[in-house]
Design a protein around this nucleic acid. Structure first.
Lengths: 327, 327
DNA sequence: CCGTGATGCCGGAACGTTCCGGCATGCCGG
DNA sequence: CCGGCATGCCGGAACGTTCCGGCATCACGG
């Protein structure tokens, strides 16, 4: 039923009546090949179901066929990074590449390029990788020393602004923010977006900072302190992933039902936000797509199709749910 | 600082004063090499930081360096499968292998072997893949026609029994089960485990079946029907992933606070279970580890280290939380 | 002393691709 | 008619590994 032997370049060449070199040139668009020859080779290749042998290609090109991927260690269990990593793997597979996860402090493994997810300015592994001289793409900007060859970023500050507009339209007059420290570009953007909106609308910026990997209790404490300090707060925006869901029971205990007495929103969407009672308004960061884009950008850089310094914008989306729709 | 050029087999051989064949034999334990020569080669290889070139190896061995992975299509967004897939990718990377996701009904891509996650008996893609004649490992048994070369499975029935023991010890007298149909081996095991326990303990097996990919409303309706039919039910076990979390608000509305008026448990742990209010007792299926094991088993089969027909047990764990601890 | 078999080691070919250099052919202006 | 150049195509080498077959050397029994 299927072809007995996998078709190789030589099979295609012979069938098309040309040499392997010409076949190779025709298929890759390199060298000098006449239009008709090229068409014939492409036709034959399609008919035979020819798929280039990745191993042979990488061997010849002296590339490893592998890219390295690093994400902040504390967060590898998070759903966001799971999806992100998965996106990178998909993008790599589409380009015939493998992905190696870089976690330990060991020396850099043999890879053709690097993807760094949300690089923290004070992560020693990140600084070492940035200094390795390999083509590098980061998801969100690296705020430390050095510069990546490519950056995939999202308009966090603007989207937080849109979220604030929505809260305002839903009747919130005293919004407050709980955010992770500014070590990551994302947290800084959320923080900055909030402050900018407050300034522009003449509101006092009520902010509480928690560590990047704060456990639920810390988030709860931060919320309690904010509410004790300013009982008039009527909207709460949470930066850290999952944090908003942890606050629901606490707010209920305090007699403040989310969506009725107080608006609640998260800067990171997840299943927990959808399943919370009430479902929580959140920003969908599209982590999988971000991962795919990081890989794509890296391969463009590796192929020389794109100059170092490129920046790509990855769209994100505000998802409005019951927690911010005042009944 | 680092080595200028990556060490190749030839570098190692020359440095150790042997031929490339001998070096290869020494490093892989094949052929005939004296103990001292072998030791010397290994020493030199370690000193030079020699890493075999995967591309060259795969090229020579006529292997693709890729394994195929298929998981039930409806569930690719689930956290469980995300973790499972990730585990397979890790296991593959450890063996210098790439992973291609097989989703569409297109013809089988070029791979050395297959991993099928929770194969459904009536999934046409699964039956086609099983018939492809490739080395295949499934996670959970395949209940349809044909047999995989390797199976990684967990003791679901036994663990459901343990869960039932726990519920019973917490005072539950009338437990009920909501479970997905028997198309997957996992669902069948959960179902069977429940019935076996009921029989052994002289309880009436109260079961409601929902489709494998039932939306939240279906699960809620099933629960409502069960509770309407038998108001004396005092413990509810949910099969489908995430389902238990969907029931919490519903039960609250009915005036049955989980953990107080009624015990609630899930057969699949997830972040949603941890974050629910109250946190929900669940069975941690260790999806990531399961994925790693599937890949490992497949590579053992590919290498001929293990005979076809092998079965590996992957431990799972009951995690007790507030939803089943009667105050 | 020869035949036999085990042991230790090796050279060369092959896997499928890319790429460097080269060889015709045809066209142009001088 | 010749030199130069562009066009279209090609052969061969190389990437790093594995593996088949073969060549010494040595021990041992006849």
């Amino acid at each position: 039923m299927g072809p007995d032997e996998p078709a190789t370049l030589l099979t295609v060449a012979k069938t098309a009546g040309v040499s392997k070199t010409t076949a190779s040139d025709a298929l890759r668009g390199s060298g000098r090949v006449s239009a008709q020859t090229k068409a014939r080779v492409l036709e034959v290749a399609a008919a035979l179901g020819y798929v280039p042998n990745g191993s042979a290609r990488h061997l010849r090109r002296a590339s490893t066929g592998t890219i390295g991927l690093h994400v902040p260690e504390v967060l590898t269990r998070s759903v966001y990074y799971m999806a992100f990593v998965f996106g990178v793997v998909q993008g790599a597979a589409d380009n015939d590449y493998d992905v190696t996860l870089i976690t330990s402090g060991r020396r850099t493994p043999r890879v053709d390029g690097l993807v760094l997810g949300d690089p923290l300015a004070d992560d020693p592994i990140v600084t070492r990788l940035m200094a390795a001289g390999l083509p590098t793409v980061t998801c969100e900007r690296f705020t430390g020393a050095g510069r990546a060859d490519g950056v995939v970023l999202s308009q966090h500050a603007e989207t937080v602004g849109a979220l604030m507009d929505h809260l305002s339209a839903s009747g919130a007059a005293r919004p407050a923010l709980i955010v992770a420290g500014d070590a990551s570009d994302w947290a800084a953007a959320v923080h900055g977006g909030f402050r900018a909106w407050c300034e522009h609308h003449g509101r006092e910026p009520l902010v509480r900072t928690v560590p990047f990997d704060a456990p639920p209790e810390d988030v709860r404490r931060a919320a309690l302190e904010l509410l004790a300090l300013r009982p008039e707060i009527d909207a709460l925006v949470c930066g850290p992933a999952g944090a908003a869901a942890h606050l629901v029971p606490l707010l209920r205990e305090q007699g403040r039902v989310p969506g009725r007495d107080l608006l609640l929103a998260s800067c990171v969407d997840s299943q927990a936000m959808q399943l919370a009672d009430p479902p929580i308004t959140a920003i969908d960061l599209r982590p999988r797509e971000a991962g795919v884009r990081c890989a794509e950008l890296l391969f463009e850089l590796l192929a020389g199709h794109t100059r170092p310094g490129a920046e790509r914008v990855q769209p994100i989306e505000l998802v409005v749910r019951a927690s911010t729709r005042r009944a």
